[in-house]
Every structure is written in C-alpha cells, then in structure tokens.
C-alpha cells in the first residue's frame, strides 16, 4: 500500500519525446572555444569570423560561403550555439575540429552537443 502512495506523490515526467520524421532542415551545435591564454576576450563577430576562416582554410571559397548562423554567444564562457543546414554539418564540424590557432595562440573547439532540435541545445 505504501508503495502505491509513493507513486502517486511522484511528479509527472518532465521529459518530452520529439519525433522528427523527415530529415531536419537544420542541425544545432553547442560549441565552446578553449584558448591557451584563458583571459583572451572575443566578441561574437570575431567568433564567427574565426569559424569562417576555419571553413575557408579547409574548404575554400565555396565552403566559406555555406550559410550558418550564430544563435547565441556567451562572451565569458566562449560558448555558442550554431545553426547549420543538415547537409553542411560534417563540413562545419570538421573545420571546427581542424581549427588549431587563433591569432598565433593555440585553441580548440569542444563540441558539447549536436542536436536536430533547437529546444535542447539552447
């Protein structure tokens, strides 16, 4: 009897199941930038420019022209949410992986999350 009581008291489940039937238009990535000198500050524009430079060095002009968006950017943690067309995910991700330098100092992109729905990455 006690056990059923406990069950009743439990709050309703908070998770939500999302089924995407067609291949999604966008993919969302949550990335953070790790720099050698932790004090370095970046603006959102510089951050996006860095990513575009990475795309250009790996894929050339066509790669750099592929549209992607910087949805959010936190300057103190250097964490951002990117939105990219699904077809361009592999290209964007690989260029982030191979990006090793920012203004002559070492850097690394840590991909924290990749999702096809924005509500979970944000």
């Amino acid at each position: 009897k006690e056990r059923t009581d406990i069950k009743l008291k439990m709050p309703p489940a908070v998770y939500e199941r999302v089924v995407v039937k067609n291949s999604p238009v966008y993919q969302y990535m949550k990335v953070s930038l790790v720099l050698e000198k932790a004090q370095t500050k970046l603006t959102a524009v510089e951050f996006k420019h860095l990513i575009t430079t990475g795309l250009k060095s790996l894929y050339g002009e066509v790669g750099a022209a592929f549209p992607f968006d910087l949805l959010t950017f936190e300057e103190d943690t250097l964490t951002a949410v990117l939105r990219i067309y699904s077809r361009g995910l592999v290209r964007l991700w690989s260029s982030l992986t191979l990006l090793g330098f920012f203004q002559q100092q070492r850097c690394a992109f840590r991909v924290l999350q990749v999702s096809r729905t924005s509500s979970y990455t944000l």
Binding site: W93, S94, T97, L98, R106, A108, R110, V111
Partner: peptide, 17 residues
C-alpha cells in the same frame, strides 16, 4: 599537447573526410 586532442565524436566526424 592537450589543446590538440579532440573528442571522440569530433574524430569520428573527421574520419568521414
């Protein structure tokens, strides 16, 4: 160098290249 290490999923994505 620690900053040249990449996560396993990054590496898997890179291998697709």
């Amino acid at each position: 160098k620690a900053l040249e290490l990449r996560g396993p999923y990054d590496v898997a994505n890179l291998a697709q290249l």
